[in-house]
């Protein structure tokens, strides 16, 4: 089955990102296709490479980046939600006059159209959040 996933909460504060990750790992292992993972609301905070959790805890951001690399996952961060919360790629930094970027490897910033398209293209859209 072709699945799309939406993650609406940030890392550590809320379990949504962990559950989405675990779901995707299981879905891939079962042979399903992940069309796209879309990060919205505070979910965009999953895409900062500046996160430094304690060493005895899981590294949620790196885990997403590694999963993306291993399975060629499309991890999309909503641009409008990202701008509010300070998640920035090099293009956005330039456009908005910021002194740096912080997007993690494997993530890209794009518009909400990517979420709607995922809803249309996928057999199921799964939403993780409150």
């Amino acid at each position: 089955m072709k699945l799309a996933v939406m993650v609406n909460e940030g890392p550590y504060t809320h379990q949504a990102s962990d559950t989405a990750y675990n779901f995707i790992v299981a879905a891939l292992a079962a042979g399903h296709e992940i069309f796209r993972v879309f990060f919205y609301h505070d979910g965009v905070n999953n895409g900062t490479r500046l996160s430094t959790p304690p060493q005895d805890d899981r590294h949620i951001v790196n885990r997403w980046s590694e999963l993306s690399k291993a399975h060629d996952l499309d991890l999309v961060v909503c641009v409008a939600a990202a701008q509010r919360r300070g998640i920035v790629d090099p293009d956005e930094a330039k456009r908005n006059g910021k002194d740096s970027d912080n997007i993690a490897p494997g993530f890209r910033i794009s518009g909400l159209g990517q979420l709607i398209e995922a809803g249309i293209q996928a057999d199921r859209l799964l939403v993780f959040g409150d």
Partner: peptide, 13 residues
Amino acid sequence: LEGLEVVLIGAAF
């Protein structure tokens, strides 16, 4: 607010 933004963008589809 962010939910309404999804509706408005989605309208184009």
